[in-house]
Amino acid sequence: MSRLTRRGFIATGSAVGAVLASPTIVRAQGKVTVGMAWPGMQDAVWSTSHKLLNEFAAASDTEIELVFTAADMDVAKQASDANDLISRGVDVLLVFPIDSKAISSSVKRARDAGIPSMAFLRQVHADARDQADVFVGIDAKYQQLSSARTVFEKMNADGAEISEVLWVSGDIRDENSRLRGVGLQEACDEYGATIAQDLVGNWDPQQAAAALAPALKAYPNINHISVASDVMMSGVRQVLQDAGKWAPHGDENHMYLSSVDVFPIGLELLRSGHLDADTIFDVTGMCRTAVELMPRLAAGETFDSDVLIQGPVFTPANVDDPEMQAQLWAT
């Protein structure tokens, strides 16, 4: 599970499109060399994004060379790697920060050397002295908002009562989890629902189960559970099975479930009809956008806003559409 941080200004939806379709596009001449200071390759997001960035770069109209370094989660090594890339004279420094604060010093060195920088997935901390020239990340708030909104719509169509929602959140210290909670709150506000209880699952199925089991007894009439990541769904399934509420959509015992990420278990539960909506953690979209921005950044174009990717909502009805399948990366 990725941990995201971000500063206040976000560009969502149409703003992303506006950034990408800007009429003031300045194309870099010739080859663009991009130095990648990556945390490592052990995590699925790190390795997948590395692979996808290479694929999109190879297909780009501009010749883009990606120079890859991996820091093995060592903050000091990531700084050294960034220094090496700056010494190499890359055109753009692309950083996937291990630490959102420590990376600021590398961003500063790049700027001192006249090299623009792009932060990927994890933003340079808002309090840091030096910010990256552009941030490409995930719109965490939109993820939960869109997922919950889809379920509320479905409940309306089914004639189900919308009143209270149980919220299985991630890590309380995690900005990503906090923003997903804000997204759920906005969806609830739109449909006149309230969050009955915030249950901290710490991105862990067993902790999610431990928190959800007593809450389900305290709120026996709950008919919608929103989960911060489908990585915790095995714990949710276990609790609902014990409570006799684990049934696919259409069954009278069905519990409406909304979630985020679309990991393999999410796909499985969408197909079985147990999970009603799941917004993807759109690594593909992020990589595509990052590659599109690289030549422009190298050419000296500046960006007023961050670029936050929203990603589509997977539902049982569209889960096997080829277009949706093309978005999958974690399966």
Partner: peptide, 18 residues
């Protein structure tokens, strides 16, 4: 030196690989 260079102190400043 590392704290000053990174502008921050973390629990993962130097890892076992080093």
């Amino acid at each position: 030196i590392l704290t000053a260079d990174l502008g921050t102190a973390t629990t993962a400043m130097v890892r076992d690989v080093r």
